[in-house]
């Protein structure tokens, strides 16, 4: 029998390599481009005042972004407080108890669907149930919207981390006379913890930059976020959008870019922290 020519396979192999090398460098170049642009546009108006003062009303010169950063922290923390307890519980339940049961499969399907819902729709939903009903925008409504976006992501990572733990550990816990609940909450949780923390940090970082849902819910305010539950609450993503897009004033454009730079630095720090936990986990696996 004649052997097939290896020419095409070899060519395909080299093309594949060239392509993936190219794609990888493209990603790096893009990343560098983004960072370069933000730094170039944003660095000039970085100052201590920017991080100490609240923003000023439209058109007034000066003012900072501190209120928006604080608002983002509050809205994101509120979202985490709303989403994490049920999401962690659901993820653990799916991995440890639900497994292949009908309810678990239905829950998994729902979570997958939730993950695909556009954030603008989630924002509109939060607007419908929390803003029109109460008659006012609020930071809390923003947290609610972000919590809905965070929930499915955290359920998934938690389930993945817990089901990644072999049954050997579970069996040796049960064999000592520990109950399922106790072994899950003590030892299995410890084994899964660093992976879950990584996933949660990435999910938090991800939603903290969401803008669309906040336009429907928290809106914006040139004040400190004192009325988190009852009134418009400033946030960094909305400040960036409105200062750079809706304003004719060059000084506001500058502040918008600076806020973007601040956001990028903070999120980079969160990502590095998340990787650190992830790396610790990888080291432990060895």
């Amino acid at each position: 029998m004649k052997t097939r020519s290896t020419f095409f396979r070899k060519t395909k192999d080299s093309l594949m390599r060239a392509f993936s090398g190219f794609a990888t460098s493209m990603a790096l170049v893009l990343m560098a481009w983004v960072i370069f642009t933000i730094v170039r546009e944003g660095h000039s108006s970085i100052s201590a005042e920017l991080f100490l003062n609240a923003s000023k009303p439209f058109g007034e010169v000066g003012g900072g972004i501190a209120n928006a950063l604080l608002g983002t922290v509050m809205i994101t923390a509120g979202a985490a407080a709303l989403a994490l307890p049920p999401a962690l519980a659901a993820g653990i339940w799916l991995a440890e108890f639900g497994k292949d049961s009908l309810l678990a499969r239905a829950a998994r399907f729902t979570v997958n669907v939730m993950m695909g819902v556009p954030s603008v729709i989630v924002g509109l939903f939060a607007y419908g149930v929390l803003v029109t009903t109460t008659g006012h925008f609020s930071g809390f409504a923003g947290s609610f919207a972000l919590a809905i976006l965070m929930f499915p992501v955290v359920v998934r990572t938690t389930e993945d981390q817990f089901s990644g733990i072999g049954d050997a550990l579970r069996e040796s816990l049960l064999a000592l006379g520990a109950s399922r609940a106790r072994s899950t909450l003590t030892v299995i949780w410890r084994a899964a913890r660093s992976g879950v923390v990584t996933g949660v940090l990435l999910a938090v970082a991800r939603v903290s930059g969401e803008t669309a849902p906040l336009l429907f819910t928290a809106l914006f305010a040139d004040t400190w976020p004192t009325s988190y539950f009852s009134g418009p609450t400033p946030s960094a993503p909305v400040l960036i959008t409105s200062y750079t897009m809706d304003s004719p004033f060059e000084s506001m454009h500058r502040i918008g870019w600076s806020a973007a730079l601040a956001m990028a630095v903070i999120l980079l720090a969160v990502n590095i922290t998340a990787r650190y936990f992830g790396a610790k986990r990888a080291a432990k696996r060895k």
Binding site: A168, L169, E171, S172, L173, L174, A175, L176, G177, A178, V187, R190, A191, K284
Partner: peptide, 26 residues
Amino acid sequence: LRRRVGMIFQKPTPFPMSVFDNVAYP
């Protein structure tokens, strides 16, 4: 029952905690 009937598995399964806490667990 499981307290009275201990089990050792083929692959050692130390818990992700200190030597002391492993033994103190039961």
